[in-house]
C-alpha cells in the first residue's frame, strides 16, 4: 500500500492507503477525525465537505492518494486557539442546526462561500450556493440566517 502524507488541521500526518481509499475514509478511519460525515456516497449531500488547499471539496468523492501533500482543514480544525470560528458561532446563535449531522459540511461550505464571494451575501445567493448541501432538519431558514450573520462576522 502506498504511503501518503498531508497537513491536516495544521499537523503533519501520514498513512498507508489503498488506491481506492477515499479522502473521507482516510480522515475518519485513519486519523479518527469523525466530524466529517458521509451522508450519501454520491457527492450530493455535502456532509463530507472539507477544505483542500483552501477550497471546499467533497471528501466522499475524492481519493486519498490524489491528495498526497495537500493541506486539509476539517471541521475540527476550524476553531483557532480554542475560539470558535465566526461561522460556527453563527450556526449556534441562529439555531442553524438540529441533529448536527449535516452541520460540519454546511459550516465548511459556508466558510468557502465567504472566501469566494465576500462577506456581504444576500439570501438568494446563499440559497443557491448551498445547492450541494442537504439538511433534512432545519428547512434551511435558520441556516440561511446563520450563514448571512457568520459571513458578516468573518
Amino acid at each position: 500500500m502506498p504511503a501518503i502524507s498531508m497537513k491536516v488541521n495544521g499537523q503533519a500526518v501520514c498513512g498507508d492507503v489503498e488506491g481506492r481509499t477515499l479522502l473521507v475514509e482516510f480522515i475518519r478511519d485513519k486519523l479518527g477525525l469523525t466530524g466529517t460525515h458521509v451522508g450519501c456516497d454520491t457527492s450530493q449531500c455535502g456532509a463530507c465537505v472539507v477544505h483542500v488547499n483552501g477550497k471546499a471539496v467533497k471528501s466522499c468523492t475524492a481519493l486519498a492518494i490524489a491528495h498526497d501533500g495537500a493541506e486539509v482543514t476539517t471541521i475540527e480544525g476550524l476553531a483557532a486557539n480554542g475560539k470558535l470560528h465566526p461561522m460556527q458561532e453563527a450556526f449556534r446563535e441562529h439555531h442553524g442546526l438540529q441533529c448536527g449531522f449535516c452541520t460540519p459540511g454546511m459550516i465548511m461550505a459556508a466558510v468557502d462561500m465567504v472566501n469566494r464571494l465576500g462577506k456581504k451575501l444576500d439570501e438568494d445567493t446563499i440559497r443557491h450556493e448551498l445547492e450541494g448541501n442537504i439538511c433534512r432538519c432545519t428547512g434551511y431558514h435558520n441556516i440561511v440566517a446563520a450563514v448571512k450573520a457568520g459571513a458578516a462576522n468573518m
Partner: peptide, 20 residues
C-alpha cells in the same frame, strides 16, 4: 436559550454510531 448540545456538533465532536 441557545442550545447546549451545539458546542459538540459545530466543532465536529458529535458521537454518532458510525463514529464509534
Amino acid at each position: 436559550v441557545k442550545r447546549k448540545e451545539d458546542q459538540r456538533f459545530i466543532t465536529g465532536k458529535g458521537n454518532y454510531t458510525d463514529d464509534i
